[in-house]
Structures are given as structure tokens and as C-alpha cells.
Simulated scan of single mutants.
Amino acid sequence: MKTIITLCIILGFSLTISSQEKFDHTSWDTALLLNVYEDGSVNYAGFMQDSSYLYKYFKELSQNRPDASWSRNEQMAYWINAYNAYTIKLVIDSYPIESIKDLKKPWDKKFIKIDGEWLSLNDIEHNILRKFGDARIHFAINCASISCPVISNRAYTAENLYELLDIQAERFINDPTRNTITASHISLSKIFSWYRKDFKENGEDLVGFVNRYSRIPITNQDDLGPKDYNWSLNEVEQSVKGFAYD
């Protein structure tokens, strides 16, 4: 099955990069298509098998840091993809693990080399991505855990960025395993408390932000408090993983 997917990509079914874009994310897009399932579960063993795509992408990232000539969307897409790709690397470098939190200070580790500078995942998230002022990035970057927003199985590009961020926000907010929003009760992910100030955009409060995407609006429901956060690895089940190599 994986061979068929790879052939489809080679024949042109991978994402199309606009000739106007500054950076080609095809290597990452290919690795995602091969190893991230529709439900967002990740085949880490598959990423290890397909590491040539990853390491080609890391080299491309390292040699092509965004500058002022890049559009805002191009820069955001680059850094979202970089964060997610290097999170995969962090896991597979120590695989198998039960949780990313089994690693020592995973988000502070400066293992990402971009244009000669060593960065951590926290550097990318807090010093770069959050400064764009778009709270939807919290649904795009993935921390390799079950309660995190699922990783998209397509690469972000300047062309698809806005639509894909909206899709990720709607998917996360309406996922009952990550948020409970019913007519009588609410219980939101801890992401909304950790980054509460980020969700106050254009004079809107957190409830207003959530209601942009929630199928059931938050009005006067009982607040059950934040949902428990499951830090277990967001790994595909072994039976499905085996199928991927048939």
C-alpha cells in the first residue's frame, strides 16, 4: 500500500507549490502523506523508514530561512512545518517512547539548526510563531501527544495556509475527545488556558473565538473546568501500522 501511495506522489498527486512561493515543502508533504493517517495518528516507525524525505527537508529548511522578502503566509507556513517536522525528529531520535514528556526538557532542547542558528521548539513557537498574532497556530503545531491538535497530513503552504488553519481550528474545537461543548456543559482543552491571551483577538474574548468555530455555541453552560490532558504518544495502532507496509 505504501508503494502505491509513493507512486501516486511521484506521478504528481502531491501538493502543488505555486511558482511564486519562496520555498518548496514537497519533501515534508510526501512524508506526511505516507505516515500520518486521516485521524491524525502518526506512524513513527514509518517516518523512520522514510527518513530520506525528512532529512532532505531538514537540509532545505536549514539553508532557506525566511527573510523580509517572504510574504507573511510563506513565513508562517515555513515555521509551522518546521515545528512539526522537528517534533517528529525529536520522537524518532529516541523511539520507541510512551510520551514526549519521557524526554528531558523536549521543548527547550536546541537541536534545530536553521541558517547556522540553533533553535528549540519553544524558540519557534514563542519567539516566532506566536508573534504573528494568529491564535490558530495553536491548532496547527503538534506536540506528539493524544490531546494535542492533530497534525495535518498535508504540508502548509502560503496558498493553503488560511484555509488549513481554519480547518484545524474547527476540527480541534469540535472534537469531543479534546473539548466538551454541549448545550448544558463545557470543558475546554488546557490549550485555551495556557494561551488564553492569544485567543483575545480584535477585541474578542476566548468565548467569542471558540464560538467562531464551535457547532454548539458557548452561552451560559456549566463550566466543568479544563479537560485532562493526555500526553501519551499520538501513535497509530500496531495493527494499522502493519497494514501500511502490506
Rank of each mutant, 00 (worst) to 15 (best):
I191A: 12
L161W: 03
R196I: 09
T180F: 01
H126F: 13
P149D: 06
Y156M: 09
N122Q: 08
D198Y: 12
D134R: 04
D123R: 01
R136N: 13
R196W: 07
I146D: 00
T177A: 10
A155V: 03
D175H: 12
H138D: 06
S187H: 15
N174R: 05
S189F: 03
F139V: 00
L164F: 07
N142S: 12
L121S: 01
F199V: 00
I124A: 05
Y195I: 08
T182F: 06
A155W: 07
T180P: 02
V150E: 14
E163F: 08
E170P: 11
P176I: 00
D134Y: 09
F192R: 01
I181L: 00
A144E: 07
I124L: 15
N160A: 09
L161A: 09
F192A: 00
I186L: 05
F172Q: 06
T182D: 06
L129A: 05
V150P: 07
L164V: 13
E163K: 12
I128V: 13
K190H: 08
P149C: 05
H126A: 06
L164Y: 13
S147E: 02
K190Y: 09
I128H: 02
D175Y: 15
W194L: 06
I151T: 08
F139T: 01
H138T: 03
S147T: 07
C148S: 11
R130K: 11
C143E: 02
I128E: 01
D198W: 14
W194K: 07
S184K: 15
I141A: 04
L121G: 04
I191K: 14
S145F: 02
F172E: 02
L121I: 01
L119V: 07
D175N: 15
N174S: 06
C143Y: 11
W194M: 12
P149G: 05
S187F: 14
H138R: 09
W118V: 02
S120D: 08
S152G: 11
S120A: 07
I167H: 12
E159R: 11
C143W: 02
Y162A: 15
S187N: 13
A135P: 09
I146A: 04
S189L: 11
A158G: 14
T182H: 12
Y162V: 11
R136C: 04
I167F: 09
N127S: 08
I128G: 04
N142D: 10
K197I: 08
D123G: 05
Q168C: 05
N122T: 13
R196N: 12
Y162M: 10
Y162L: 03
R178L: 13
S145A: 09
D166F: 13
L121W: 02
L119Q: 04
L164G: 01
D134Q: 07
S152N: 15
F199A: 03
E170K: 15
T180N: 06
F172A: 04
R171I: 10
I167E: 15
D123C: 06
S193V: 14
F139L: 07
F139H: 10
S152T: 01
N153S: 11
A144N: 05
I137C: 02
S152A: 13
P149K: 03
I128P: 08
Q168D: 14
D166I: 14
I137Y: 00
P176L: 00
S145W: 01
G133Q: 06
N127E: 08
W118R: 14
G133M: 03
I191M: 10
F139K: 04
D134H: 06
F192M: 01
H138E: 10
A135C: 05
